[in-house]
């Protein structure tokens, strides 16, 4: 496995790109959730005012 990877270093690049993409994806996911929570809060606040 290790010797295969060191001979075909393009796969290491691939793994790194995948990890970076995963990081970006989950960051976006959490951001999306946070925005949804804020949305809910604002809606509740507006209802309370009324």
């Amino acid at each position: 496995m290790e010797s295969f990877l060191s001979n075909n270093s393009i796969y290491i690049v691939m793994i790194i790109v995948l990890i970076v993409w995963g990081g970006i994806f989950f960051y976006l996911l959490s951001l999306d959730k946070r925005i949804k929570n804020v949305e809910k809060e604002i809606k509740n606040g507006e209802q309370n005012e009324k």
């Binding site: 393009i10 995963g22 996911l29």
Partner: peptide
């Protein structure tokens, strides 16, 4: 669609880099 997006771009990066 978020899961599909995740898989789609993962596949594209694997294919684009390693094929």
């Amino acid at each position: 669609w978020k899961i599909i997006l995740f898989l789609l771009i993962s596949f594209v990066s694997i294919a684009g880099i390693a094929f």
